[in-house]
Design a protein around this nucleic acid. Sequence first.
DNA 1: ATTTATGCAAATCCTTTGCAAATCT
DNA 2: AGATTTGCAAAGGATTTGCATAAAT
Lengths: 166, 166
Amino acid sequence: MSRDFSLGTVEVALKPVERLEEYLQSRGKRVTQQRKIIVEQVFARHEHFDADDLLAQLRELVGPKKVSRPTVYRTLTELVEAGLLRKMTLGGRSVYEHDYGYPQHDHLHCTKCDKLIEFSSDEMKGIREAVGREHQFRVTGHRLIINGICSDCTKARRGTRPQDLI
Amino acid sequence: MSRDFSLGTVEVALKPVERLEEYLQSRGKRVTQQRKIIVEQVFARHEHFDADDLLAQLRELVGPKKVSRPTVYRTLTELVEAGLLRKMTLGGRSVYEHDYGYPQHDHLHCTKCDKLIEFSSDEMKGIREAVGREHQFRVTGHRLIINGICSDCTKARRGTRPQDLI
DNA sequence: ATTTATGCAAATCCTTTGCAAATCT
DNA sequence: AGATTTGCAAAGGATTTGCATAAAT
């Protein structure tokens, strides 16, 4: 199966839910209703989100009391462990995005409207390797966020609240 | 006046305290004892620190009740606004480092021992420009953190607590 | 004399936890 | 049945805020 996203295409053998089941079973964890509901909803949209966004989405699209807040937090942690989601911290709050079946990329962060735009740069690979070698550092990943003002906000001349630059 | 740091030398016209006074006066804010004590202590050491570290340093080197916790937080925010400090978020907590008179650089973050190592890469300038142009984004800064295991932890074979990869 | 800043205590925000009841295997 | 999960309520940790008092202009 292959999925096509704005940044490219990556081959993935299993659907997110299946990947999760595989992960859960390999750890003797259980495939519960709420975990299935959560992956399903998480992969139903591609935008970046935080625990609250997800909770709101669940309440709206699935039902008001299908999954509790603690379970959302617990499951998000598992989805990160399972390699399905990637977590990042933007000004104090945790933000998640798809990792599974999604190509490596970085972010442009508009400090006016707080929008996140994805981009990919091949040069990063080189930088990582070079820097790692130089410092005898075993590199496992990186996070690059370029801050600035997006074109929309530049046009709109009057921005909203000033954001702290992570 | 020039200051020499591991990554290079940058010319700065005023000392941090002076720069702060300039900033405060330009805003009709007051040059208080605690604000002066804080900048002084903040620039007395070059390591990265968080609000708690600073509070501890103040209690130890200045006195146990010279500056309160809320004032530390309020002043750190001002120092960032004044361009004296740079703020970053590492796994939920805010970490600060010198910005004023200190050259642009990025970080290597050891996910075992949580150590931060500075490095600078010239390629980043190019990436920033290219990406900004491509997305009509007015770039004002960036944050690059490369995660991995530092040489110390690799040697020590057994790391400490697992960290979440920002 | 004004007006801003500080310190205290309490409040917030996001996230995590203890524990009994519910749900999987 | 037996173990893991869930949901609830409460706890936690970092950071912020209201307000009376202290300090700066």
